[in-house]
Nucleic acid binder design. Structure first.
Lengths: 344, 344
DNA sequence: TTGTAAGCGTTATCAC
DNA sequence: GTGATAACGCTTACAA
């Protein structure tokens, strides 16, 4: 009803100057007598005074806010990441502005402009496009840029936090090879993303190392969002020589892919082994429980927040932090059955 | 590298006064000659100038920012809500500050204080506790408070957007009664939440209306977060007289509850019918596909943002908006089999 | 220990 | 059309 109290109102009520109030506000910033402090505190109570962030920010430059620019909160992996980032940030008294891009370069560019005008101290992002100019501008504004999960080679000033995707793909592929699989379907994200590329590289390298001729027809690069997992799965199954195992990049791809599998009546793992690059609570619920690659979300978040908040004098080159993913073997992978072994 | 350009730098570069720059910035706010506008625009480009939100906010009071205070982003329902809210807000040029409370009253109180100091124009929240004072203070600051999904009776100034939980529970219960079930387990959220209460009320009222004596031992009020669904499920199954059907409030409860079901080797729906209050992509993947109550997230979000942004002169009493939930019958519900029909 | 006063980057109100 | 100039609420030298 009444308009918000300002620092002046508090000062008046406490019978001191605004400088004193400011000092008790920013605790260590100067001497205040016990009595004055008491009266100020009391006045703040009475007037239910709350300092305005905007005013504070105006003076003291960069704020204790970080931007979190995610491709898709609906993706459980990103949701968990968001949860962890928000928690981690909160524990350091930092706020998080969440924005989503839906994998749309235009939205991303817009979001970056807004973040720039906010003068956030750092941005944690899963980049979608090479908005090189925008990222650069952010850097010029002294905003730390941290890429998490994926990154852009064209933006060297950014820090990177991620799992070793190439190695993870290798691990998954090796697991299947050891079980005896020779034709492995690989559904990755777009090759325009580092995740898509690294995993594909790791996969192909592993095949090569085991003397297996990679068949490019077994590779599917589809968007992370959406239902294309079903089509990818379908086209893979319809081959004369269908794969005996498959690796899926994503929860969304897994859900739509598995749905197609079910429609086709394909049995897992007897007819097809399945590995998914993403863990979820329900993943165990699926029959059979899925073999998955688990990313340490908490850790990714902690490091990202760390970097986003860190001052870095020489901001021309970013740092790279790799954390370990955990491969969890459950029941969706097994040796290929004779029935599906190639006839050649 | 160089420090961010201010409005003054732009003015200098364009050879005009800051007033002119300000006018081209806020398009309609005054006359500017075409020539001047051109030069200013050019200068802004060259200096890659970005107006500072903080300064703007300082002047013009409430900002175009809303707070989104969720209990748990990890809950897919809330994640979808967040996604929709962010999208909806973006389409109106409004930013979203996301905060999570983890159902912890203390965290919630903290978050509310921060939001107050931010002078956000509105807050959309799934309240956890009766931080009545904090909510009131927010209202005093002219911040619209919108409760979504759940609400607090003790905060009358807030708007409410939600499904009709009582009716939804009724619908679910009636479905099961029609199939012939008589002993229905009901796992709800805490009775301290309106969702928990309304659904329980709806359920019990429906039983009563059908002349069925409600057994309070079939009711379980457990937290929305965490794994207590498993215990609830377990204790229900261990009864001499176990229910033939069960209603679960939540994805988290469903996941842990269903896991327990699987461990116990209970067959769905032949031995137990299951209804879940929440839809998810994987819900169809579960064998058998789950019968669910689907909340219209998009709509909830759209209305919430609407209200959060709306000016309301008489802010003493909030508005209430109910949207319709959709009950989707799939394969996890069926008539109870003779084998489990009570022997009495 | 306290108070005064000069900004911080914008917007908006005036005179010109 | 344009340009001074006074706010906005706060922090921070610097003086007292």
């Amino acid at each position: 009803m009444t308009k918000p109290a300002t620092i002046r109102d508090v000062a008046a009520a406490a019978g001191v100057s605004i400088a004193v109030v400011s000092r008790v506000l920013n605790d260590g910033s100067g001497p205040v007598s016990a009595g004055a402090r008491q009266r100020v505190l009391q006045a703040m109570q009475d007037l239910s005074y709350r300092p305005r962030v905007a005013a504070r920010e105006l003076k003291s430059g960069p704020t204790s806010t970080i931007g979190l620019l995610l491709a898709d909160v609906t993706n459980p992996f990103f949701a968990r990441l968001a949860d962890s980032v928000v928690r981690e940030a909160r524990s350091r008294g930092v706020q998080v502005v969440l924005m989503t891009t839906q994998e749309d370069p235009r939205l991303e560019e817009e979001a970056l402009a807004t973040l720039a005008s906010r003068r956030v101290s750092g941005v944690i992002a899963t980049p979608t496009a090479t908005n090189a100019g925008a990222w650069q501008h952010l850097g010029d504004l002294q905003t730390r840029v941290v890429f998490v999960d994926r990154y852009l080679d064209s933006v060297p000033l950014a820090d990177v936090v991620s799992i070793d995707n190439e190695r993870s793909a290798r691990e998954a592929t090796e697991h299947l090879l050891e079980l005896g699989h020779r034709r492995i379907g690989f559904v990755s994200g777009p090759l325009s993303t580092t995740t898509g590329r690294s995993r594909t590289d790791g996969h192909l390298a592993t095949l090569a190392a085991h003397g297996i001729e990679p068949e490019s027809e077994l590779l599917r690069n589809i968007p992370f969002r959406g239902d294309q997992g079903a089509d990818a799965m379908g086209s893979l199954l319809e081959r004369d020589d269908p794969p005996t195992a498959i690796i899926l990049a994503n929860t969304a791809q897994a859900v739509s892919g598995l749905r197609r599998l079910r429609q086709a009546g394909v049995k897992v793992p007897s007819e097809l082994s399945v590995v998914v690059f993403d863990d979820n609570p329900w993943t165990e619920l699926f029959a059979p429980a899925l073999t998955i690659m688990r990313q340490p979300t908490e850790l990714l978040a902690a490091h990202s927040v760390d970097l986003a908040l860190s001052q870095q004098p020489d901001a021309t080159a970013g740092r790279t932090l790799m954390v370990e993913a955990e491969f969890v073997v459950r029941s969706s992978t097994a040796a290929p059955t004779a029935a599906r072994v190639p006839s050649n």
